[in-house]
Amino acid sequence: MTLLATGICALCLAALHLEARFFAPTLDAPRSPWLSAAGGAAAAYVFVHIFPGLCEGQETLRRTGWAIVSVLDRHVFLIALGGLLVFYGLERTALAARGGRSGPPVSPSQQGVFWLHLVSFALYNFLIGYLLVNRVHPGPVSLFTYFAAMALHMAGNDHALRRHFTDDYRKCGRKVLALAVVCGWACGAVLHVHEAVLALLFAFLAGGVVMNTMKDEIPLDGSGNYPAFAAGAAGYAALLLLL
């Protein structure tokens, strides 16, 4: 039953990428309050649910006795920082190719930028799908909160990628990302890693969620929607505390 439930969640996340374009009129600029609320909810999930879990993951790492643990401290949080830096670098690359946030989508002549983003976000979606099955805290409530937060987060990612790479993303990008989620779930169903590795994977995901959420809420042009973002964050944080 658990595998079936996570499989359904993976298919729903994949369908989100395939069908998100139908919601484009509602989500497009000026910055939609729905996107801001979704970003706030995803950020709340990271700060209220994942980050406290990273403290447990840090203790799990210390108990492994791995050599790297004796060299570095705060390993889990360094991985989270790494996730943030990776996606910050990707965003800067896309903005440079566009000539700024208000510039046109990346041109077909800059395919390298598109493929760099596509491969990176495919691996990111693969990780999201994998962690549907292999979460630090198993159980239906954990699955629901993780799925809901990732669905909201991926809606924002889809919107950002469609804005950067309009035609290329519409033609093949969304299909690759949808497939990546399902492949991640399938891998998670047959391959289980050490709980310390699981903590590191969640740490990287946390850093990525923070960056991919905040990059659209604090742009230099001020197009974020603070009231909607704050409402989404407060509402989802309250839900997580109640469950």
Rank of each mutant, 00 (worst) to 15 (best):
L72G: 01
A238T: 11
A196G: 11
L131F: 03
A155D: 01
T213G: 04
F77P: 00
A231Y: 11
A206N: 07
T145M: 03
N134R: 15
V193W: 14
V69S: 03
H194Q: 12
A151P: 00
F126E: 02
A5L: 08
V136F: 13
S120G: 01
D168I: 06
F204W: 14
A20Y: 12
L220K: 06
R98G: 11
P108M: 03
V119L: 12
Y169E: 02
A97Q: 14
L132E: 01
T2D: 09
N157P: 09
E195A: 12
F126M: 10
D221P: 07
A237I: 10
F165A: 02
G222F: 04
H164W: 15
P219Q: 02
V182I: 10
N212K: 11
T93E: 15
F144H: 07
L81I: 15
D168Y: 15
M154N: 08
V209H: 06
S102R: 14
R162E: 06
H159W: 12
V106W: 10
W115R: 01
F87G: 04
Y124K: 00
R21I: 15
F144M: 09
V133S: 00
V86S: 10
A24P: 10
R92K: 15
N125A: 04
L13W: 08
A203K: 05
V133N: 03
A199V: 09
D73L: 07
L16W: 09
G83S: 10
L18Y: 10
G184L: 05
Y146M: 03
A199M: 09
P140M: 07
A20S: 13
K215C: 05
L198R: 11
P138A: 08
D167K: 15
F144L: 09
Q58E: 14
V76I: 11
Y146S: 00
Y130R: 04
A24E: 13
H159S: 08
V46P: 00
G53Y: 12
D28W: 11
A206H: 12
R170T: 08
D221R: 01
G139V: 12
L116K: 01
V86K: 08
A38I: 05
M150F: 02
